[in-house]
Every structure is written in C-alpha cells, then in structure tokens.
Design a protein around this nucleic acid. Structure first.
Length: 826
RNA sequence: GGGAGUAUAGCUCAGCUGGUUAGAGUGCCUGCAUCACACGCAGGAAGUCGCGGGUUCGAGUCCCUCUAUUCCCACCA
C-alpha cells in the first residue's frame, strides 16, 4: 500500500494509531521460547502517585531502545512493566485528600483507610502507565505488575519469614530516624543531609559540690537538654579528669546528672564536653547504652514537646529552643553563642527535619547479606556501566548499617508478625496467625506496622516472574539482563535487589546496570517542583512528537552523565524526523511499481557501491555501539548517515539518474529503496513511530518493522576501494562549489566545467555528478588541457577549469543587481 | 574528612583501547525559492582541547601538580 505523505511530518497523525497497531498485533508480548535466547528488562516501577517527568522519559527511552533492538535481533525480549505502591507518598496523598473532607486516618480506622487507598489506586494508578505508552514504550502489558499485588505480597511474606528464621530480620529498640511530618520511621538511606546555618550555644552546667565551678558544654540543639541524662568528656582529657564520676546540675530542669568519660568525645572539638541526650541523638544513644543511662524522650510523634519537657510541653521544637535559650540567658547559664554551619538531616520525601527517636523497630541485618552480594559483583556477575559506579555501590554496601524496614504507616505490606498478649513472644508466619506458636494462647495481635516500600521493590526482578513459585517464566527470564536506572537510586534499590537476588535466588538479578544521569534544565539546574523549572515530557510529545523527544534524550547522552534539556535540542530532533519523512516522500514519489522490495540490483554503479558500503559500515557500528551501551554514539551515526550520506549526497545523485531514466534509473531506485529501508530498521529502536509509519509505506514484506530483522554486517557489501574513489570525486565537487561561493555565483548561474584528470573514476564517471552537484551547464573531461583565463580548482584527483569570462560576467551582473536592490531599500 | 565526575567553538555536547588537518547540533555571517524537505540547500568565520610539568617518534586522549566547578558518602555534640 503506497500512501501520499504530507509535506511536513505530523506525529499526531501517527503515534496513537501506530501504538494501537502494535498493541493489536501483540508485538510487545514475550513468551517462554526455548528456541530463542531471552533478553529481559524489568522496569523500575514508577510510583502510582507519580506523573511522568523527564527522568522517567529518559529511563524508559533507554530501556525501550534496548528492548526493541534485542527483539529485532530475534531474542525473546521481555520488558516487564509495573508500578510501585510508594507507601509514604501514597499515604500522604490519601491523608491529604481526607483532610479536605475533615477526616483523619485514626478517625476512619485502618480498614476504611485501606479501602480508600485501593480506590485511589484504581482511579489514578493507571495514569503513569498511560503516560508511558505515549512515549512508545514497548512493555509487555499482559505481564504488568504492582508491588502490592497478591504475588508480590506472597513474595514479601516468604522473604520476611525466611530472613526471620535465619536470624537476619530482628526486632529491636534503637535510635532511628523519625519524620515528624510523615510520622514514621525512615531508613538511613532516606535521610538527606543539607548544610544549614545554625548556632553553637555554649552553656554552663554547674558542678555539684564545687561551688562556682562550671562545666561548659557546646551544643547546636539546646532544646534537647531537657532530655539530658549525662555529660561526657574524653577519658584522656587532663582538663576534666578530676570531674569524672562527679555530677552536674542540669540547668532549667534542676536535676543532677553524672559526668562520664567516653572516647566518643573529641577533645579538640568545641569545649571537649558533650551533653548526652540518648533519646534525641543516635551517637548519644550509643553512649547511653555503654553507660547504662536512662533515655528520656521529650517529644511527641510530631516533634512537639511532651510532658517530660515540663513547662515547655506543647511547644514545637523551634519554639522550645527559643524559650530554653531565653531561660538559660535569664538564668546566667548562657556563656556565648556563635554562628555555626552544620549538616541537618531531612526526610527525602517531605524535607522535614528528621528527629532521632528511640523505638522498637524491625531491622534487616545487613552484613551477612551484603558480603555474598559484594563477592558476586566483584566477580563481575553484575557490571555497572559506566564502571565507576561500582565504587559507589561498594562504598555503601561495605559500610551499610542495618536496614530499618518497619514503617508506622498503613499503606503497604503489613509485617507478618504477631505478638502474644500472654507470653509476650513473637510469631512470624506467612499465614494468618490465630494462636501463639510458643504458648498457644489465642490472644495474639498482628504488628500494626508495614514494610518499607523498598523491601518489596528489592524483590521485583523475581517476584514479578512468579517467585516463590518456580514458574517457567522465572526459569527462563531470570536472571534478567539489563537494569536501567539513575545513579540517585543505587542505594535505595539496585544494591538491595542485588543482595536479595543473591540471597533468595542464588543468582544476581541482572548482568548489567546501565546508569544514566539526571535530566537538567537548559541552565543546568535540577528540575524541581519548587523551582517550577520542570519540563513536562507530555507537553514535549504534544508539540514535537515522541520520536523527537526520544531522539533528544538518546543523543548527546553518555552513560552516567547528567544532560541538559532544551527546546532547541528537541527542535533539532523534530527537524531530523521531518528530514527522514521528506527523504521517504522523495523515494516513494520516484519508485516505479516494478521495484517491489528492497533488494540490491545486480549491477552497482560507483556511487551505489559508495552508499551501500557506507550503510554496511553503519550496521556494524550501530550494533557495536548498542552492545557497548553507547546509545548516544549509535544514534549520532544514524543521524550522520541519513542526513549527510543519504540525503545530501546520494539522493541528489539519484536525481539525474531518475531524469535520464532507463536501467540506471531503475538500479538507482533499487539502491535507494535499500539504503532507506534498512537504516530505518537501525533507527527504529530510537524513533519507533516514524520508522514504522514509513516502513509501512515502503514496498516490503512483513507486517511491522518491529518484527523485521535487525540488519547484519555483510562482508560482500564492503567496497572500501570504491568508497575511496568516490570520495575523491566528492572532494572535487566540493572544491568547485566552494570556489563558486567565493565568487558569489548562485547555483542558478551555471558554467561550463573542464575537468582535467588522470583518475579513472573521475574520468569515466564524474560527468553527471559534476553537472548536478557542481552546477555545471556542460562538463568536458580531458586527460590534459590548458585554458587561458580560466579559474583553476586543484584537488587530489583533478584539476578543474572554469572559464573566467562566464563567471566574471555573472559576477558583474550580481554586483549590479545588489546595488539596485540596496538603492531600492533606501 | 573520604570518594567520584566535569573542564574541548558564543552555547550544548561527542571524541572508545594515544596515530592524518579535533567533530556535531545550535547560534552567527554570506548566498539561494533548484522539481523531498526553508523543520531546507550551498558556502564561511569560529577552538592555546582549564593551567603547568612528564612519558612517547607522536598526547584532547596516558601519568603527576595545581585551579575551577558539580555530585556522592561520612560527620565533631
């Protein structure tokens, strides 16, 4: 079927229709097929609360390029899609929505809350998925998963019980990071530290029994003194040695607390004396454990001061600080205040300053899990691209602390642990527990907490393939091949998937982690909601088309590096799409009916061999680049071939042959169809929509470019000698054009050319090329010739003479014309 | 404090294991309505490859020092 193509490519006419065509053809679906080699990518599941942003667009584009390429190579290519329940983010959304109705979580209760959450998921959870489709993502939608679906829930329980039984999950009272806004614990990885301007308050604590003698402590958080249970000095500090064992009177609280010695204290920092607040500082908590100090929690869940704060109860942390400082000053305890910059931890979700909090939480013991994972990575079973990111991985995994996995949230996988009200022991089970495993009491209740979202994400590469069942899919597609993600997510997700895979599957979850950078705005700033500088990929798709967006994101992007996104770049990409479109139009307009498929003719002219040989090299290069994950280089080469080789040279050369007609024209048509048809396949992973649309219009066999074969390098098409010969002619043509431009001769003013050459290719084949591309009215080729008064252009292959009189006349005429027009302008 | 990245044309970036005269896009300048495309064509100007050393027949590329800049980790209250 041959279509009339519009002059300008309009993605809107093509994209949705084409995507539907693919869906209808079931091309994205991958089956277990022992005859094929599998290639698997699991998608980094976007949050159900999310909207497609540029980071997603980049991530999905890279994955789609890889999966489409492998599919065309004949692999059983599975791109497994899905979404993440995003516990904190989703719960926050529901709570917010309820607040508008005057409702609270506690008010409606757990069950009703979860009903609402699932309803919300049903309504909005699909939004991000439909946005992925707009990009052209060729995911196997039949296998779409959700981190909280039944299968994932089974996997989570299996893992939890398994690790608990191995002693790798435990419950303990620890100082954890608490977000007073989200009202839940968060893990170490979920705290972002930012340098903030603050103060260093020096406070005098009077020493008991030594009238007038003070111990000067320095702190950045004076309000926490309400929970002080000791002050500490270094055991070797001569200044304070005599005081260890004595007591100080805690100002404002008027309570005696001991002076202890602990090597945690740095003698050279501050005054060398530290107030110890086990409840509100993780280091102090450790000191407290060593010295058996009481823990006095002075704050509520929302970080307001509780009854332990005495008269300060009810104040916020900030109000309390002001009040405490004022009271210290009034009491004469405040020695001095100095400005101080220090790092303050904030919640990665909401940015609220976290509060250390001592509470009972569930933890994953990391060391025994990290070790075999690290060995596997060190052995090269999983490779990072670019390599340097393994350093980041190792740095984290080798220093990793136990992972706090319990969250005081309702939306998520509930912890499969039950407490006995009679014997107080814990029963952990995959099934609903109705009686205590230890004393058989039926007075049991389940832990109200849920698991960190990342606990279920960590299992994604195998939970999505059916684990814990040993499904055919799991056997065939696991381990997966490539994981594509940003460097910002290595700790949260990549590391945890690796140790989970090694632990539960006995094999790393993927062989390659392709790391990309951040997409920044045109000024190089991070795109953020607060700056309002985010660029909406859907708007870009709407204006320029998905192919232009994908091309932009794939170009000029080397692995691991950040990139800037600008309208200029998308514009250039859109222009490229249009260029391809018009080249196809030209070809379709000139293809006679007898050219039915893209096959080379028997006889190849010099320029045919040149372009075919160039194409052949392109196949090899693009494939090699893809194998090495150099997607940006691959797409650049395609661009160069299509625009420069194909459009600017080969199509131009064909024009004269088409006019001449006959055998030469027919052969040119065949070659042209060939060098358009095949590179389209190479380009398809990058620009799927336009390539499919043109491919459909070209005379071909097969129903979709998606299932056409990825081209392979063919040694028989390597015409290196002819390439070199033809390039000599090209150089000569360029030289003539160059000289004409210098002399301001417009293309419409044609001149006679005398070409003097010993070069056989130029001698026998050059004439039509010069006529068309060097704007010659007539071409005379000679082995030797002298011409008086001619402009001479000398190149490697030929000496070209342009009769002076013709050009001089033209030049004069031009000068006259330009004078006239400048007069007219005035 | 520890680690990593980046520095190449006005701007945004390529440049893989060292090898012709350092490339592209965009912007700029000149010319062009030539029958695929002005979202175009032809031509042009534009670079001390951050600085200084070193290795080499040969360095944008490898090594060292320094400078600027970005990021990650840790954290001393």
């Amino acid at each position: 079927m041959r279509k009339e193509l519009d002059k300008v490519y309009d993605p809107k006419q093509v994209e949705d229709r084409t995507y539907q065509f693919w869906l209808d053809g079931d091309y994205f679906h991958a089956e277990v097929d022992p005859k094929k080699e599998p290639y698997t990518i699991v998608i980094p599941p976007p949050n159900i609360t999310g909207q497609l942003h540029m980071g997603h667009a980049l991530d999905e584009t890279l994955q789609d390029i890889l999966i489409r390429w492998r599919r065309m190579q004949g692999r059983a290519a599975l791109w497994l899609p899905g979404t993440d329940h995003a516990s904190i983010a989703t719960e926050a959304k529901i709570v917010e929505a309820m607040r508008a109705e005057g409702l609270t979580k506690e008010g409606i209760g757990r069950e009703k809350f979860l009903e609402r959450a699932w309803e919300w998921k049903r309504q909005y959870g699909g939004r991000i998925v439909s946005q992925l489709k707009k990009l052209g993502s060729s995911c196997d939608w039949e296998r779409e998963r959700f981190t909280m679906d039944e299968g994932c829930n089974r996997a989570v329980k299996e893992v939890f019980v398994n690790l608990y039984e191995k002693g790798l999950i435990y419950r303990g009272e620890r100082s954890i990071n608490w977000c007073p806004h989200c009202k839940t614990s968060i893990s170490e990885a979920e705290v972002n530290y930012d340098e903030k301007d603050g103060f260093f308050w020096h406070i005098n604590y009077p020493i008991v029994g030594e009238e007038g003698r003070m111990l000067e402590i320095a702190t950045t958080r004076p309000e926490t003194m309400l929970g002080d249970t000791a002050v500490a000095v270094h055991p070797d500090d001569e200044r304070y040695k005599d005081l260890v064992g004595k007591k100080v009177l805690l100002p404002l609280v008027n309570k005696e607390i001991p002076i202890i010695a602990d090597s945690y204290v740095e003698m050279d920092f501050g005054t060398g004396v530290v107030k110890i607040t086990p409840a509100h500082d993780p280091n102090d908590f450790e000191v407290g454990l060593r010295h058996d100090l009481p823990v006095i929690n002075i704050m509520n869940e929302d970080a307001t001061i509780n009854e332990n704060g005495g008269k300060y109860a009810g104040m916020t942390r900030e109000e309390c600080r002001k009040a405490v400082v004022a009271d210290l000053e009034a009491g004469g305890y405040l020695k001095k205040v100095e400005p101080y910059k220090h790092n303050v931890g904030g919640c990665y979700r909401c940015g609220t300053i976290i509060e250390p909090r001592v509470s009972k939480q569930w933890f994953v013991k990391m060391e025994p899990l990290a070790k075999p994972a690290n060995e596997a990575v060190r052995a090269g079973k999983t490779k990072f691209v670019p390599e340097r990111f393994d350093k980041i991985y190792f740095n984290w995994m080798e220093n990793v602390k136990d992972w706090c996995i319990s969250r005081q949230l309702w939306w998520g996988h509930r912890i499969p642990a039950w407490y006995c009200e009679d014997c107080g022991k814990i029963t952990v089970s995959k099934q609903e527990v109705t009686e205590c495993a230890h004393c058989h009491s039926t007075h049991v209740h389940q832990d109200p907490d849920t698991l960190d979202t990342w606990f279920s994400s960590a299992l994604w590469p195998f939970s999505t393939l059916g684990w814990p069942d040993q499904t055919e899919e799991l056997k065939y597609f696991y381990p997966t091949n490539t994981l594509v993600t940003g460097y910002d997510i290595i700790f949260f997700w990549v590391a945890r998937m690796i140790f989970s895979g090694v632990e539960h599957m006995g094999e790393v979850p993927f062989d390659t982690v392709l790391i990309h950078g951040l997409v920044r705005d045109a000024q190089g700033r991070k795109m953020s909601k607060s700056l309002g500088n985010g660029i909406d990929p859907l708007e870009i798709i709407d204006h320029y088309g998905a192919d232009a967006l994908r091309f932009t994101l794939a170009t000029g992007n080397s692995p691991g590096n950040d990139m800037r996104f600008s309208d200029e770049k998308v514009n250039a990409s859109r222009n490229f799409a249009n260029k391809i479109w018009n080249a196809s139009r030209f070809i379709l307009m000139n293809l006679s009916d007898e050219v039915t498929c893209a096959q080379l003719p028997e006889e190849l002219a010099l320029e045919d061999k040149w372009v075919v040989s160039k194409y052949n090299t392109l196949v090899r290069d693009v494939t090699e680049n893809l194998e090495k994950f150099e997607l940006g280089m691959a797409v650049q080469k395609l661009y160069d071939f299509i625009w420069d080789i194909l459009c600017d040279w080969y199509i131009e050369l064909c024009k004269s042959r088409f006019q001449a007609g006959g055998e030469s024209s027919l052969n040119a048509q065949k070659v042209l169809a060939y060098v358009m048809h095949h590179p389209l396949r190479l380009l398809h992973p990058f620009m799927p929509f336009i390539t499919e649309e043109i491919w459909q219009a070209l005379p071909h066999e097969g129903e979709s470019i998606m299932v056409s074969q990825w081209p392979v390098y063919d040694a028989a098409l390597d015409f290196a000698a002819e390439e070199a010969q033809f390039e000599k002619i090209m150089a000569a043509i360029r030289a003539v054009r160059n000289r004409r431009a210098e002399m301001n001769v417009p293309p419409s003013k044609k001149a006679k050319l005398y070409i003097v050459t010993q070069e056989p290719a130029v001698f026998t084949l050059g004439e039509p090329f010069f006529k068309r591309l060097a704007f010659a009215s007539e071409v005379i080729v000679a082995e030797d010739l002298q011409l008086e008064g001619a402009v001479q252009v000398i190149t490697d292959a030929a000496r070209i003479l342009i009769p002076m009189d013709e050009l001089v006349d033209k030049q004069k005429e031009l000068e006259r014309l330009s004078k006239e027009s400048s007069v007219r302008e005035r």
